[in-house]
């Protein structure tokens, strides 16, 4: 028990260190960005504002102070649970992230779950019989997918399913002119379908290929030979033994790819104009909304770290040998 607490404590310390480094890096990048926050805020109205007024805004936001001072101020506020004010959305950063994340969550969750399950099943099927017809086709599919850029795939899907076939809506999380609360479940799902499918395709190839590699290894192992000697069929060996063993690399990849999922979500949300966290990130970056961007970076880092911690926990469920190492 004390061991467990110590392990959790270590993990927590590491998490804090990671978040600190992420914050520092993100802040440094924002400082190096050529976009001036005040200019970006004013936009075309820049011409109507006198240099004195401009200086006043800069002073009020604190962007005229040295970078170290700004960072210290932000850090101090963060300690008090104060994430700052988003200039782009003119709302507290916490609120923006909360509502945007809730909008992105169905997209992220369905894409992630779909990619993991679909990729895993394809990998097991492909690895059941090396160089069988299923293996050959699945491998071709995975290689093609792995070399396809997300945004391009999104545009193609949009052209085919929304424009040519007209099966899915062209943009957004709901029809224009309707507020979020009025949307029915069916409408929401209808708008979610294409972005989620596109985003899930992103992770399929990796999980399939890694699952397949582990499957091939197992199908050649003594475990499989022993099972065949007992009269087991290839399919039985694949699903009873193979799937168990292939779980480990698939889990690792699924949780390690959470970060990529966020990256992919940015592109997909941009193409489909889906109002989620990804779009908010792009807006914050383009208009130099430092508090919002820093908070999103921290939030993403936290999310990915928690995902990896969860993966570590799940390993122990799958592989009994790991349980004892940590006890």
């Amino acid at each position: 028990m004390t061991c467990l607490i110590a392990a959790l404590g270590r993990r927590l310390l590491r998490l804090i260190a990671v978040l600190g480094i992420v914050a520092l890096a993100a802040f440094g990048l924002m400082q190096a960005s050529p976009v001036d926050p005040v200019d970006a805020y004013l936009g075309p109205q820049l011409a109507q504002v006198s240099p004195e007024q401009r200086a006043l805004i800069a002073e009020r936001w604190g962007v005229d102070q040295p970078a170290v001072q700004q960072f210290r101020l932000w850090l101090g506020n963060l300690m008090r649970g104060e994430l700052g004010w988003s200039r782009v959305y003119n709302a507290p950063v916490g609120e923006v992230i909360g509502s945007r994340f809730l909008a992105s969550l169905p997209l992220l969750a369905s894409a992630w779950l779909g990619a993991t399950l679909f990729g895993f099943i394809l990998g097991v099927v492909a690895g059941t019989r090396e160089d069988g017809w299923a293996d050959r086709w699945i491998r071709r599919y995975a290689y093609t997918l792995a070399s396809t850029p997300t945004f391009w795939l999104a545009i193609l899907a949009l052209l085919l399913f929304s424009v040519t076939l007209g099966w899915t809506p062209v943009c957004c999380a709901g029809p224009a002119g309707v507020t979020r609360d009025e949307l029915g479940l069916a409408t929401r799902l209808h708008h979610l379908l294409l972005p989620a499918l596109t985003l899930s395709l992103l992770g399929v190839a990796q999980i399939t290929l890694h699952t397949r590699a582990r499957m091939l290894e197992l199908m050649r192992s003594e475990i499989a030979l022993h099972a065949f000697a007992q009269g087991a069929s290839r399919r039985e060996v694949a699903w009873r033994h193979g799937a168990r063993h292939a779980c480990l690399p698939a889990l690792t990849l699924a949780f390690a790819s959470l970060g990529e999922l966020f990256g992919g979500a940015i592109l997909v949300e941009q193409v489909f104009a889906y109002p989620g966290l990804g779009r908010a990130t792009v807006e914050a970056g383009l208009r130099s909304d430092v508090p919002l961007l820093l908070a999103i970076a921290l939030f993403t880092a936290l999310f990915v770290s928690l995902g990896n911690a969860l993966a570590d926990g799940l390993y122990r469920l799958v592989d009994p040998r790991l349980r004892e190492v940590y006890q």
């Binding site: 192992s221 475990i223 030979l225 000697a229 009994p320």
Partner: peptide, 14 residues
């Protein structure tokens, strides 16, 4: 029936 030579024939996850 075959009794295999290696203990690696047992599936460690089951």
């Amino acid at each position: 029936a075959l009794i295999p030579q290696s203990l690696a024939a047992l599936d460690p996850l089951v």
